[in-house]
Structures are given as C-alpha cells and as structure tokens.
Design a protein around this nucleic acid. Structure first.
Length: 556
RNA sequence: GCGCCCGUAGCUCAGUGGAUUAGAGCGUCUGACUACGAAUCAGUAGGCCGCAGGUUCAAGUCCUGCCGGGCGCACCA
C-alpha cells in the first residue's frame, strides 16, 4: 500500500482508539505539507472532528500527534496553528517505502475500482474522413483516463463506436461515388450536403486503383447516385478505407481500441428490437405524430425523444438504446461515454436509457469535454468536416509529435475550453511543458550513464540505510512516494491533468535537487544513497509516462 | 427563454468533499555553465480569485442573485 493511503488508515485507527468514533472518516485530507511548514505529511483530520467531539481542533490535533509520535515509522509529530497534524517520517521508513516500488508496478496501483468492469467509449467519430483535432482531445483524454482507471483497480475496455448506419455515412458514400465517377470523366456532382474535402477524391483514386476498370463498367451509366447498383460496394470500400486511416492515425497517437463497435451490427442482429421491447414493456414508449417517442422526461430530460421517425426509420438515439444494453450484456459494471461539448444535451438522454433498461443511473457516466479552439495567428479558426477545412490529427502529429500533442490535450481540465495555438505547437519549443518533464528523465538517465563505472546497481540497490537526508533529497523522496496517490485521485476525479501536474512537480523537485547536489562524486556513501533514490525516481517516471502515454527519452 | 461549461497574475491555465502564507508555464527584470545535459536552477515583479449577498470558527472552493464569454436546445449524427 502506498504511503498516503497507509497513513490515512493509521490516522483512522488512532482516532478510533482515542475517541471511539464510529463514523466512516474518509473525507479528511492527508498530503505533503507546504515546504515552509514543519514535517513531511500533514492532515486536517482534527478540523473534521472538532464539531463532533466538541473540542478545539488544536487540542484534538495535539492528541493525535502524541499517538503518532509513538509509531515506529515516525520521527516526530506536531500540531500546527488551527489544528493540522504534521508528521515527520523516519529516514529508515522512507527508505523501505522506496524499496517497495522496484519489483513491479504494484506500488503505483490502488483498488479504488474494486475490480469493476468499465466500458470506456471515446472518439466515436463518424467514419467519413480523417480524425481532426477535436477527436485528438478525446483520444488523448480517453486513453489516458483508461490507463489511470486500469491502475486504479478497474478492468477497462477501450471502445469506439462506428456510426456506420445513418445519414452521414450515406452522404459520404455518395460523395465518394461521385468523385469516383468524376475520375472517369462523368459529369456528376457531389450531393449538396455531401463531403467536399480533398481526401474524398484521394480515396476515390485508391478505389479506382484497387477495384480496376471492370468495376466502373459493371456500374453502367450512373445518372442518379442513389440508384447506383454497386452503391453497397462503394460504401463498404469507403468505410473500410476510412476506418483504416483512423486506426493508423490513432496508432501514431498511441491509442489502441479494444473494440471498434459497429452501429449497423446492432440493427442486423436485431438488438434494437430486443432493447426496444424492454423499454416498451415498461410503458416508456408512446406514439405521437406517426412517430415513436421515449418518455425520457420521466428521468429528468427536458423533452421526450423520438426513437422511430414517421418515415419508419430509426434515429441515432434508437441505436444508443441497443448499444447501452449491449455494453451491459457484455459485462460492463460501469459505462463511460466521453463526448464533445455539442453533446451535453445528451447526458440526460443516455442516463434515461440506462434507467429505462432497468439499471441504476450511476451505472453510466457521461463526461463532456469542452471545446477545442484552434488558433492561427491568434485568430480562432472555424472548422467543418463537410467543407473540408479542418486540421487533421495527422497533421498535428507530424508537426508536434505524439508526446507534445498528448500532453497538451490532457494537461487542461476537461471542463475547460482548450485553445490550441498551431504556430506555438509547431515551434515545439520549451514553451511546451512536456519538454520539462522529458528533460528531467533524460538528465536522470545521463546520471546513471555517468555513474556506470563508479557504482554497480547491485551495490546501491541493496543499500541498507540512506543515512541522513538533505532537504532537497527528502522532498524528492516524498514527491516520489506520493505519486500513487495522485494516480488514484486522477481516477476519482476523472482528471488526467491532476496527474500531469504531479509529474511536473516531480520533475521540478528533481531539477532543484540536481542543481544543488552532485550524484557521481567522491563521497561514496552519498553517491550510493542518491543513486538509490534516483533509481526509484526513474521507475516512477517510467510508470507515470506510461500512464499518460508519453515516451521516456534517454536522450533528447 | 431554458440547459451545460467557463470567469483566478500581462497571456494560457492549475487549484482536491472548505483549512498551514492562492500556484505553474509563457512573458518581465536580476543572477548562475573549467563539476553528472543551462531544454536547467536561484531570485524578482505581477492577484478586491467577475460583482453582490448568504452559510461557516474558517470560502477561490458551498448556496442565492446578477454581469460577461463559449456551446447546445432536431422526427441530423
């Protein structure tokens, strides 16, 4: 168990012994103390107990400090101002904690998720073109959150939904067909609402290449795109091609989905009908104006929603009912949807589905990412996929690289708008904080390179005692040991940025240490001690980099 | 009009179930490479935390109202 969690439990047990409280006691804080205060780790527990115990926090804090002092891991414990209980840990204890994180990743894991299965859906773009920067935010956020959940005791499935059923797919297929015919000189236009982007022609060229001349001949003379006899094959080709493009982009971005789930498959397998039956049996459907409506207002939505249009077609919302049912049937204890800002009206609808199907509302969590604004020359760009003037994720990756792009996307809170300055990103300079963190790692690796001849890993890793610790060393050790807590809190808050901040702080603590103390040096004891601490730091960087999806570079 | 999000340093943003002196990056100014990488470090300046009430021993954080900005309110996806 990691440091903070352990101390939390210790404090709870002390409180139980001393004051005999039965309440849960989970909401108090245990965290590193500000550097200008005495002690290593502090707690505000006394403030929480003050009301219930009817005693001043300072008095309660003092009693807890007395009890903490007696613990074998404590060097000292004091009470501060309003009632903080600050504990100073023994160096021997810090050393043994560091020792725990070498073998595997367990020290960085926590059991917040208690083994629950989570279906985490993100990106879910229409399969009608290359992924853009907006999907980039979703990809970086969703993938990182999935990692954080994995480290927090959840069993996570990364999933993306392929909207291959509706009108957009149809329009795209028609556009592709038109471009294809144009390559043969046919005078036929893209549908009015079709996709104008250059990439459609590119795909048409590939199709022409792969399908060969016979395909065009077989088509006959097409005057109406809708009536083309080979429409199905064109659509199929376009879909596959676009999905492959998206997959390869995501791969470059370090994102790999476990499942690409097809909307069409829900209809083909009759899952829409069976899910409908459940809702219908509960009397949640009704007919009005020749359409079928879902009474989502029963669950707090501001209006009821159509599931089947008056022309007999299902809506997108109808697929969603089957999709959520499908996810639950596949074993999801928790369904998470990461959506863009234009979907916030969807939250209540999705919750309604979950409840309408007979499950708890808490079984679904909808996370709305706020908007990404692209800035070029300080001006906001308006993007539209149909107009074809969007910036693709591929372009972004080419100009700034995976690490900077991912880091930039997740370092902001998901509730905040994100301004993406293209020129700044293209500079790839130290204005991007990812370099700060990666530089720390490269520097660290360099030390080990220098130390290679002076000391063997067997020697410093089997160190018995750290001896005395300088201020900067202590801070570095504490910064390392609290990372697991940040991983857990990132999961609790669905906030990867909580973790990037912690990593940034960790890097900063290391840089400060580095500037003040030499590692490879004559004082052998000091060197071994520092190599020991830095080994723990190296491991910590590697694990956190893995979680946030950036590359640990030995050289930059 | 209704709903979601945002308003914190010059700019871009963090800020945890209220709590130790509100933080970081960029930009400003001043210092530090003949020692493990100066993509770094040390220091400096810069804040009525949008406004007004309320709750509390304690509010950037919770409640109410207002002001400003973004986005959404389809038998589109």
């Amino acid at each position: 168990m990691a440091l903070i969690n352990f101390l939390k439990k210790e404090i709870v047990s002390i409180v139980r012994d001393k004051f005999g409280l039965k309440t849960a006691l989970t909401q108090f804080d245990v965290s590193p103390v500000p550097s200008n205060q005495p002690g290593h780790i502090g707690s505000n527990i006394a403030m929480y107990l003050a009301k219930e115990l009817k005693k001043p926090p300072y008095v309660i804090g003092a009693e807890i400090a007395e009890a903490l002092k007696l613990k074998e891991y404590a060097e000292d414990a004091v009470v501060i101002k309003p009632g903080y209980t600050n504990i100073t840990l023994k160096n021997s204890y810090l050393k043994s904690e560091l020792g725990k994180l070498f073998d595997n990743d367990d020290y960085f894991r926590n059991d917040f998720g208690a083994g629950k299965n989570v279906n985490m859906e993100f990106v879910s773009a229409n399969p009608v073109g290359p992924l853009n920067i907006v999907s980039g935010r979703a990809a970086a956020y969703g993938d990182t959150l999935a990692s954080i959940y994995s480290y927090s005791g959840f069993n996570v499935t990364r999933e993306t939904y392929v909207n291959d059923f509706g009108r957009q797919m149809h329009l795209f297929a028609l556009s592709l067909l038109a471009r294809y015919l144009q390559l043969y000189g046919d005078d036929i236009a893209i549908p009015e609402e079709g996709y104008q982007g250059e990439y459609v022609t590119e795909i048409a060229k590939v199709m022409k290449e792969e399908k060969g001349g016979g395909f065009y001949t077989k088509m006959g003379r097409v005057t109406d795109l809708e009536k083309c006899p080979l429409y199905g094959e064109v659509r199929e080709f376009g879909l596959k091609h676009v999905l492959n493009m998206q997959k390869s982009t995501l791969e470059k971005f370090g994102v790999k989905f476990d499942t690409w789930f097809s909307e069409t498959s829900l209809h083909e397998k009759g899952e829409v009908d069976s899910a409908f039956k459940i809702i219908n049996d509960k009397g949640l459907f009704y007919d009005k104006d020749d359409a079928v409506w879902f009474r989502t207002t029963d669950y707090g939505d501001d209006k009821d929603r159509v599931v089947k249009k008056n022309d007999g077609e299902f809506t997108y919302f109808a697929s969603d009912i089957a999709y959520i049912q499908n996810k639950v049937k596949r074993g999801a204890d928790l369904v998470i949807n990461v959506l863009g800002p234009d979907h916030h009206g969807y939250v209540k609808r999705l919750e309604s589905i979950m409840q309408g199907l007979g499950y708890d509302r808490e079984r679904i969590k909808v996370i709305i990412l706020q908007q990404v604004n692209l800035l070029e020359g300080g001006e906001k760009m308006k993007m539209s996929k149909r107009a074809g003037n969007f910036v693709s994720l591929d372009e972004l990756l080419e100009s700034v690289g995976k690490d900077a792009a991912r880091y930039f996307f997740i370092m902001r809170s998901y509730t905040s708008h994100l301004d993406f300055d293209l020129e700044l990103a293209k500079e790839a300079s130290d204005k991007n904080p990812v370099f700060y963190v990666q530089y720390a790692y490269a520097r660290l690796c360099n030390i080990f390179e220098k130390a290679k001849d002076a000391a063997k890993p067997e020697e410093y890793l089997s160190l018995e005692s750290l001896g005395g610790l300088e201020k900067e060393e202590t801070e570095l050790v504490l910064s390392i040991l609290t990372i697991p807590q940040f991983i857990m809190e990132s999961a609790e808050r669905d906030s990867p940025n909580w973790l990037t901040q912690a990593v940034h702080t960790l890097a900063g603590t290391f840089h400060t240490f580095y500037a003040k103390h030499r590692v490879v040096q004559e004082d052998r004891q000091a060197m071994l001690k520092r190599l020991y601490i830095l080994s723990a730091l190296k491991k910590t960087f590697e694990v956190t980099f893995e979680v946030i999806g950036i590359t640990p570079r030995q050289k930059m």
